[in-house]
Amino acid sequence: MIRILIVDDEPLARDELAELLAPEADLQIIGQAGNAIEAIAAINRLHPDVVFLDIQMPQISGLQLLAMLDPERMPHIVFVTAFDEFAVQAFEEHAFDYLLKPVEPARLAKTLARLRKERAPQQIDAIGGNAPLTQLPCYGHNRVYLLKVDAVEYALSRLSGVYLVDADGNEHFTELTLKTLEDKTPLLRCHRQHLVNPARIAEIRFGDNGAADIHTVGGLTVPVSRRFLRTVKDALGII
């Protein structure tokens, strides 16, 4: 069974694709997303095998979305676009699977046949998918905004999700995972649930039990666990 997520900002386009996929017995559409934020959340939560991803979407395009996914749990991507000659050219060059809208059933059948046979790892970085993130999408007040990495003091993970904390102590909810942030930004792992921005570290206070606390420029405190103290010290050049 191949588990599929459909991502497109146009409801009709999603329905159309879902309808084309419906007769396939070995496919299961596990969800749909109307924008990149929903898509990140759905991918992190549902771990689909294949994502049909529209390129043209509000705020964060399908291509930008790639860089925000956890590289280790990257689903297989099939791009969908109505008209984007540059993207299509890039897909052709790097043998990426893509569909043109309106989707031709014969072409879709070919794509599905390939998906069933094998899903070889895709060269995500060839189309800019592994670019470092300098702006992080945050969600609030029913809109997405982009927070600069430089403005982040630290990031923490709670049961309710991942939050970026700025110098004023404001928490910004993001759909990015700590793992993605660690891989794609300069943020440094200092605790199982915390990343700290090395550029914002003011001092490190060592505790008795081998752990420590980081005090940031903004006057916030971030815990450092025993396990990650070594890596923090190495990264900062402290012996």
Binding site: E10, L12, A13, E19, Q56, A82, F83, K101, P102
Partner: peptide
């Protein structure tokens, strides 16, 4: 206006059903 044209065609193709 190819962007618009292809999107429109896609929409119509979904609406026809």
């Amino acid at each position: 206006n190819p962007h618009f044209l292809f999107n429109a065609l896609n929409t119509i193709s979904a609406v026809i059903r």
